[in-house]
C-alpha cells in the first residue's frame, strides 16, 4: 500500500465513521419533522410531533429532573476534578498516581455496576430510598473521571510557575487563584462541567437504579421504547441531539480558548 492510497483509505474510513455515527441521529432528526415517520419520502414537513411532546406534562417533570441531576453532577464532578487536577499537576506530590488512579477508576467499572452497587449501598447501609439526590451522587462518581480527563488535558498546558510568580509579587493563595489561575484556566472547568452535565443528563444505567420512582428523560424514553419507537421519541431525540450539539460547540470553542498563548 503506497502512501497516497493509504491516505485515501483513511479518509474513507473517517468519512464512514462519521456517517455511521451521525447517519442515524440525522435521520431521526429528519423523521421528527415528518408526518409519516415510517417512510418519510417525499418529505412532508410538520411540527406536530414536537408540539405533542411539548404538551406532555410527564416530560416536563422528567426534563426538570434530568436538568437537576445534570447540574448537580456537573458541579460536584467539576469541583472535585479541578481540585484534584490542580493538586496533581501543581504539587507533583508522591501519591499523585494513587489519587489519579482512584479518580479514573470509574472508567474501568461498568456503569451498571456503579448503578446497582450505589443502589444497594444507599438503600441498605444509608437507609435512603431512591431519589434525585442519590442518582446525582452516583452519577458524580462516574462523571468525575471524565471531568478529570478534560481538566487534566487543559491544565497540562498551564505553566504552574505563573502561580509562583504571583506569590512572589505578593498574591496570597486565594488571590493567586482568582487573579492568575482562574482567568487562564476557566475554559477547562466549564468544559468539564459541560461534559459531566451531559453524561448525567442522558445517563440511564446509573440513574435508573438510584432514582426510585422519579422520572427522567432517559428513563421515560426507556419506558416508551419498550412499547416500540413512537413519534414523540423522535421529537425528544431530535431536541436532545440539538442541545448536545449546541453544548458541544461551546465545548469546542472553550477548548480552543483554553489554548491561551503562553510564550
Amino acid at each position: 500500500m503506497n502512501h497516497r492510497s493509504g491516505f485515501g483509505v483513511q479518509v474513507l474510513l473517517l468519512a464512514a465513521l462519521y456517517l455511521f455515527l451521525y447517519g442515524p441521529i440525522l435521520y431521526v432528526i429528519y423523521v421528527s419533522f415528518q408526518i409519516d415517520s415510517i417512510w418519510p419520502f417525499p418529505p412532508t414537513l410538520t411540527l406536530e410531533h414536537h408540539t405533542d411532546l411539548w404538551q406532555r406534562r410527564d416530560y416536563h417533570a422528567a426534563l426538570w429532573n434530568s436538568v437537576t441531576i445534570g447540574f448537580g453532577t456537573g458541579l460536584i464532578a467539576t469541583l472535585f476534578a479541578t481540585l484534584a487536577a490542580m493538586a496533581i499537576l501543581k504539587y507533583r506530590s508522591p501519591g499523585s498516581g494513587l489519587v489519579a488512579g482512584l479518580f479514573l477508576a470509574p472508567l474501568f467499572i461498568a456503569p451498571i455496576l456503579i448503578g446497582i452497587s450505589s443502589l444497594m449501598f444507599s438503600r441498605t447501609v444509608l437507609g435512603m430510598p431512591g431519589s434525585i439526590f442519590g442518582a446525582t451522587l452516583a452519577n458524580s462518581t462516574y462523571a468525575t473521571a471524565f471531568a478529570l480527563l478534560v481538566v487534566l488535558a487543559q491544565f497540562a498546558r498551564y505553566d504552574w510557575r505563573l502561580d509562583d510568580a504571583a506569590m512572589v509579587f505578593g498574591a496570597r493563595p486565594w488571590r493567586t487563584f482568582w487573579e492568575i489561575t482562574l482567568p487562564i484556566t476557566w475554559p477547562a472547568m466549564l468544559g468539564a462541567f459541560i461534559v459531566s452535565f451531559l453524561l448525567a443528563f442522558n445517563n440511564l444505567e446509573i440513574s435508573f437504579y438510584n432514582l426510585g420512582a422519579t422520572p427522567t428523560l432517559p428513563t421515560l424514553a426507556w419506558g416508551a421504547l419498550r412499547h416500540g419507537i413512537s413519534a414523540e421519541l423522535y421529537a425528544l431525540a431530535a431536541i436532545i441531539n440539538f442541545a448536545v450539539f449546541a453544548l458541544f460547540t461551546v465545548l469546542y470553542l472553550l477548548l480552543r480558548l483554553g489554548t491561551i498563548r503562553i510564550d
Binding site: M86, S93, G95, F103, I114, S117, S118, S122, T124, T141
Partner: peptide
Amino acid sequence: SNTVRFWLMVLPGTVFLVVFLLLPLIAI
C-alpha cells in the same frame, strides 16, 4: 508543605469516591 496542600486539595474528591464508589462496591 506542598504534600499537605496536595492532600488537602484531593481530600474532598477522594473521600467522596471512597464513600460513594468504593464502599458501595465493597457492600455488594
